[in-house]
Design a protein around this nucleic acid. Structure first.
Lengths: 216, 216
DNA sequence: CTTGAACGAACGATCGTTCATGTTATATTA
DNA sequence: TAATATAACATGAACGATCGTTCGTTCAAG
């Protein structure tokens, strides 16, 4: 498994505050990061419900009791991870907000976001969180906010594309954006589940989506 | 919650054999059906991992020990449910195999399958099974077989549609079928998760998909 | 001296499964 | 047909394991 995404997650979370940063605060932040990192790996390998708090603590090299000094409970660990996952979407939203020809930007976004989800660790973690979101309201809300943000950014550029004449004139930007996001994600999940060769998935996805948007 | 789908499930499973049908066999089949029905409801309400064997037994009005006379274990209950879910796809596959104009049949299929998944109980149950399929090979295989069957049937009619001139000539039927199925399913799951009004989802889905297929 | 991080034993609950023990319906006898 | 043997059904207590969480204590930093 690739450790890259964990690094990102840990890096992201250390940005948040601007505290006095005593020696102890620093150590605490590191511990929290280690725990989150360990939790992500556990959830990826065995799923949220099959992972015990002891597994996380052991993997993080932290005692069971100490984990509860840093997190109120198991659920809160997942919530924090879900929030960090959300932060990883920021670059793609930023990309969509850039100036330039709508269609070119869209294609860049499509390739980038699809590549991001093509990594099994990202896809599986998202599935795990989504699955939990069905019954845990706080996670569900977080999930929907992520989605809405991404869809809104995409809808904006689709609308601009319509104005530029790059897309069909009768395109409902909002709904099309929803569907495109869903299609990218679903396609990624399938490729993770089937474990087959995934070389041509992106190309087919691009063809299909562009046909739907351009309609020519 | 709607009890209709459970009835179907139970009815489906009673068709299987053509046994001597003693009084005891009949009672046993009923018990098994009751247990499966109860399990489905539990899984829908609380998810697979949050459901205990005792919950299933209690809901089915069966003793804990007796449940193990009918099923080897909890996992096997889910496997059986997954298999029954698969059987529910049969009508849609059959629909795709019918003769007639490809486009009309496709539109009928699209509406039917989308409507099926629009029922929360179907969508959630599928999510639950999919989620489990990631780490349980037997369920995963079952899931992929379902999918492959549906995709193959859809690909066939898309190919016919290309011949008939109803769809774009450069359409890769196999890949397009994959994507269409994924899009229908993903769209349904989102609608379940968001709990918002879902009246216009089908119309938008249809527009989008047809634009992608027809490309005009 | 105060504070909170760090620890692991312990708690109560629940998990999936097994088991000993009746209790029936069915098949086999007479 | 009536009696009996048999095998499946039905039951809930019990098992060992593991769950998430709490607690009392130690120890070092502020």
């Amino acid at each position: 498994m690739n450790d890259r995404s964990f690094k990102i997650i840990v890096a992201t979370m250390s940005v948040e505050p601007q505290k006095p940063q005593t020696k102890r605060d620093k150590a605490t932040a590191q511990r929290r990061g280690k725990i989150l990192e360990a939790a992500v790996m556990c959830f990826l390998e065995n799923g949220y419900h099959q992972t015990g708090v002891r597994d996380i603590a052991a993997r993080a090299g932290v005692s069971l009791g100490n984990l509860y000094n840093h997190f109120p409970g198991k659920h809160d660990v997942l919530v924090e991870i879900a929030a960090l996952e959300r932060a990883e979407l920021a670059p793609y939203i930023a990309l969509l907000a850039k100036p330039g020809p709508a269609r070119a930007i869209f294609e860049k976004f499509l390739a980038g976001y699809a590549a991001y989800l093509a990594k099994p660790e990202n896809a599986i973690l998202t599935i795990e969180i989504t699955s939990e979101a069905i019954r845990k309201p706080d996670i569900g809300e977080l999930f929907l906010v992520n989605h809405a943000e991404l869809v809104a950014a995409l809808a904006a550029i689709l609308a601009r594309g319509v104005e530029e004449g790059a897309f069909r004139t009768d395109l409902d930007a909002q709904e099309a954006a929803q569907l495109v996001i869903e299609l990218i994600e679903a396609s990624a999940y399938r490729s993770v589940l089937s474990k087959g060769p995934k070389r041509k998935i992106l190309a087919n996805l691009k063809n299909f989506v562009l046909a739907a948007l351009v309609g020519k």
